[in-house]
């Protein structure tokens, strides 16, 4: 049972990096690829339907950490205190940009929230890289380090690559990606690239995690409720990708 819940945690973290990585990467690249307001609108429209289905992977990850690895949850989150606060604030800033950018008229309004998307995404990627490095080094090491900053830049670069590939896959031949076209296979490869930093960290902390799993009663009870729902969870995610991969762009975000 410990192995199953460790697997769930690993899948959620890697899934988050693969499925949110391109949202965050495109957010960073928004002012670079989207030179005009109209280009930025199309980029956000391309990514919008995937955001709600992507960010829940992290919400679920923290829930699993609490339920299945409870002795670690408090230790990890409070041990990473400033990074977790930064992660939340940048995440919320990015999300607010997406939700609010079209809720009022005017070029200035939208420019402000596009700025929030870009800054929030950049902050989120850097924070994630620093967080992964801090986790891999153990919580006793200082949180702010050269390795951490390098880790942040690596994650940000991987997300940018993933985001750019997503744009070239969803808007093939479009001027925003200078006419480039990428296949679904290329997108899967950059998803892998975005998930590798998370995968390395999971590999480093695997034995610690498994040692701190909750007692069997807790794990079995949660498993009995969650496992039957897994096909629905997967089905809903697949449905999102089938519906929004092609065709016209939604305009709500």
């Amino acid at each position: 049972m410990e192995i199953i819940w460790f697997g769930a945690l690993a899948v959620l973290l890697l899934g988050y990096f693969a499925l949110e990585g391109f949202d965050i990467g495109l957010g960073i690249l928004l002012p670079v690829l989207g030179r005009s307001q109209e280009d930025r609108d199309r980029l956000v429209g391309a990514v919008a339907p995937f955001v709600l289905a992507g960010e829940v992977w992290l919400v679920a990850l923290v829930g699993v950490l609490f339920g299945a690895f409870s002795t670690l949850e408090g230790e990890v989150l409070s041990g990473l205190y400033p990074l977790v606060v930064a992660l939340l604030l940048t995440w919320i800033t990015r999300d607010a940009g997406l939700w609010f950018r079209r809720r009022a008229d005017g070029a200035a309004w939208r420019a402000v929230w596009d700025g929030a998307i870009c800054l929030g995404s950049a902050g989120l990627a850097l924070t994630w890289g620093m967080t992964l490095v801090a986790l891999a080094r153990g919580l006793s090491a200082p949180l702010l380090s050269l390795e951490g900053v390098v880790g942040g830049l690596v994650v940000a670069l991987a997300f940018c690559l993933h985001g750019w590939t997503f744009a070239a896959w969803r808007l093939p031949g479009d001027p925003v990606v200078r006419g480039a076209r990428r296949t679904g296979r290329a997108l899967a490869l950059t998803a892998l690239a975005a998930a590798i930093p998370a995968g390395l960290t999971v590999a480093v902390v695997a034995s610690t995690l498994i040692d701190h799993a909750a007692p069997p009663e807790t794990l079995t009870t949660m498993g009995a409720i969650v496992l039957p729902c897994v096909p629905i969870l997967v089905g809903a995610q697949v449905w999102v990708w089938r519906i929004f991969s092609r065709g016209a762009l939604p305009t709500f975000f």
Binding site: V51, V56, V59, V64, A214, E217, V226, L233
Partner: peptide, 25 residues
């Protein structure tokens, strides 16, 4: 955490996960 965490984990992993995904749809 071994008691209190279980309902929270189920909430995030099943209920909110689906709620957010279906809301996007």
């Amino acid at each position: 955490g071994d008691v209190f965490g279980a309902p929270l984990a189920i909430e995030t992993l099943v209920a909110f996960f689906l709620e957010s995904t279906f809301l996007g749809l």
